[in-house]
Design a protein around this nucleic acid. Sequence first.
DNA 1: TTGCTCCTCACGTCACGTGAGGTGGC
DNA 2: TTGCTCCTCACGTCACGTGAGGTGGC
Lengths: 154, 154
Amino acid sequence: MPATPASAVFTTARLCDAAGVTRAGLRLYEREGLLPEPQRTASGYRQFGEEAVTQLQAIRHLKELGFTLREIGWLLSERAQTGIEPGRLQALAQEQLQAVDQRIARLQVVRGYLEMAASGHLEQLNDPECAFLMNFLSADNTSVRAAYSTPEKV
Amino acid sequence: MPATPASAVFTTARLCDAAGVTRAGLRLYEREGLLPEPQRTASGYRQFGEEAVTQLQAIRHLKELGFTLREIGWLLSERAQTGIEPGRLQALAQEQLQAVDQRIARLQVVRGYLEMAASGHLEQLNDPECAFLMNFLSADNTSVRAAYSTPEKV
DNA sequence: TTGCTCCTCACGTCACGTGAGGTGGC
DNA sequence: TTGCTCCTCACGTCACGTGAGGTGGC
């Protein structure tokens, strides 16, 4: 392919395409200080280098790991300044791992019900009391099941 | 257990505990019309019956299925009025199923990296270019990998 | 009278989305 | 000159969270 020059310069739209974020997202990360201020042309257009793609992707990936923008800002600045303390980082990863495991477990339960409904087993939804919904994900919710599953009131 | 009267009345706090939502959430659902206006005491306290627990849980479960409040409002009012058209419901379930499958798949990838970091394999994060992050979840992102994985520029 | 619970605004938060109104670049 | 892209406010959205300031109930 016809290579762009070695000092390739990205405009906002091209950078966003390359890194997989929206323009509004890019501006937000800039405002929040997650990205260094880019160079500008005389007329004010932002000019990004190759490294901006890496930085933006790092932000995107950290977001997908479940970190907030505030936390990402902290991680990036720590890394830039003193390097990240390994113990702190490992603890953060353990926290996120637990959270991710919980989210996966809940999604699996949800998935089971959706699959039933998607394949046409909709009868449960026509139940006037909506037992289908009532019993969803109620593993963590024992306080009220009796109100439906037994004839006598709680 | 000492049973509450058959015409059990819930106050907002007790209802929220029973259904697993916050008070702010309850008020929001009320404002958005997802719940019928409750009865009030002379002094303005809301008084909910047993059926409010079911209704609130239905909302919670639909949220966990990935529906927005607007969609939930539509589903609940459809059910109340004409019943929900089975074809429409099945199509909705299929859409949500696809979305849930994607979210699970991404979370599994994320989980793998978090597990490595959580168990102390932090070396990748010390890479100055942060290859660890760069290669995260990049299955759907082929456009920029070359910038890091090969010596020559894109 | 003392706590505890409830009430209603109304503003804050998080991560953006979406125009409006204007200018640059080929 | 015509499009297309870029710019900066600034307000909107989604699903709540969080006080402030006041009243009810046992």
